[in-house]
Design a protein around this nucleic acid. Structure first.
Lengths: 263, 263
DNA sequence: CGCCTCGTTCGCCTGTGGCGAACGCCGGAG
DNA sequence: CTCCGGCGTTCGCCACAGGCGAACGAGGCG
């Protein structure tokens, strides 16, 4: 299924202009800068409508003009985004847990949540060695099937698992598992062991361990996030991952408990 | 009729519903969660209007319902915010420079830009010791007058300097400089030395060094950002800051040059 | 139980916002 | 050089959608 294309979002009649404005933001997910014509084509609205909407959004700081009548996302969005993050209870609860975890394992520690068939990383706590790759645009999202974080969540969250299998398993490196049956088997192992492990499946040269953050949601226990520890494959040897995984699992457990306690 | 009421933020007649929706986002800057009544009061619109707007924004993922008819900022905003950041040329250019800087100085490296009379930090590259304070909500913003980043920019950016003096110098710690004349003198020293230094003025126990990123904007050279290095006061001794500052200045210089070259 | 505030829903009327067309500008092709 | 096709912006018009006020059901409190 090609699913819904990039267009025809705002046509539902309710608060049309607002829907258009929010759909405009979606347009910028694919292109860094756009003009009224491109937006109008994408959304299926009149060019004049797109022009006016873009202008107002720029006036309000949500977009920025970048010369020649083109627009780009504004830094105001960055601020709002940080607010959204800081007020996420999961994040609040995780920060004081993940800092010490990083100090214990001395590797990059990440907090990820499911988003469609991918994983979105909310924050990272850097280890002793730093790789600029973890600061680029690519860092924030990873396909769930090829990341330890995604597998840790999917193993305890049928919704994500379904989305992953439905979206298909795309190869990222020569080690990426792309066979659905093999992945199902791996998820079984994750359920058994309580943590997920990947080696060079998402990024060449890097291995990671992830433990799910499990909360009770409507009577069913579900993973809503995962704590992952990432390091160079050379440093994440077999004998070490057991210890690392134990620390990650403990951190994830504490986060889950505190989440449940606070609401 | 425009008829500027006592409270009339969104009321300018142009794309009214969109303006209201964007103003709604602003409301959430002060309160973590809000209902239609509070928003309506804040914006001076009818309660039903606020209710409908909130509902649509929640449907679109920009807001999230959080029980009892209250709403909060949605994680979609976090995604958009990250996109805005990643497409900022300043950020693109800085990442490959700041990583190596961190490895050289082995302390927390930050990239900050001016925002009103404050400084907004776009990203951080963590040193060997990690303090959870740099992951909380407070980390992203700092008053410009009491941070090395703010002073480094203000010294080479009259717009920020004016905003700082106009906003007044609020005390944060017992070491914070709150005398405008003293601050003016400090800015002179910054201009002379080419970098700023603060010790426990923003946060007790922490000292930092910052160097301005200078670009030519319309014929005038202006600081648009700063690179700062932060560490425990105990580790940022006088004899070391000269070396740290040299590294920071070099990094800031390279960023400025590459920015100019790429646009 | 009465009173207040909350969030949501319903009709109505009008003002506003989406549309199409026209305008001015630019770059590339002929 | 001119022409052409694309761009972003502006204008005028008409209908409809959206803001308003009132009404409704649900808590919370004294």
């Amino acid at each position: 299924m090609a699913s819904d294309g990039p267009r025809a979002d705002p046509a539902d009649g309710r608060l049309r202009s607002v829907s258009i404005a929010l759909a405009v933001l979606r347009c910028f997910a694919t292109a860094p800068e756009l003009g009224p014509s491109a937006v109008a084509r994408e959304l299926g609205v009149a060019k004049s409508t797109a022009s006016r909407t873009l202008a107002v959004m720029a006036d309000r700081g949500v977009l920025e003009r970048c010369g020649g009548g083109r627009y780009r996302l504004g830094l105001l969005l960055f601020e709002y985004g940080q607010m959204a993050l800081n007020r996420l209870r999961l994040y609040e609860v995780s920060v004081p847990v993940l800092g010490p975890l990083r100090d214990r394992v001395r590797e990059l520690v990440q907090l990820g949540i499911p988003m469609g068939a991918e994983v979105l990383f909310l924050d990272r706590f850097e280890g002793h060695t730093l790789d600029p790759r973890f600061h680029g645009p690519e860092w924030r999202r990873l396909p769930a099937h090829s990341s330890s974080t995604g597998r840790a969540i999917a193993a305890f969250n049928p919704a994500l698992a379904d989305a992953v299998f439905a979206a298909g398993l795309r190869r990222r490196t020569r080690y990426t598992v792309v066979d659905p049956r093999r992945l199902a088997q791996i998820l079984d192992e994750v359920r058994e062991r309580g943590y997920a492990f990947t080696d060079e499946e998402a990024e060449e040269g890097f291995a990671s361990v992830a433990a799910p953050v499990v909360v009770e949601l409507g009577g069913r226990k579900r993973a809503i996030a995962a704590v992952s520890v990432v390091g160079p494959s050379s440093r994440m040897r077999r004998d070490r991952i057991a210890s690392v995984a134990a620390h990650a699992r403990e951190a994830a457990r504490v986060i889950g408990v505190r989440l449940a306690a606070s609401g």
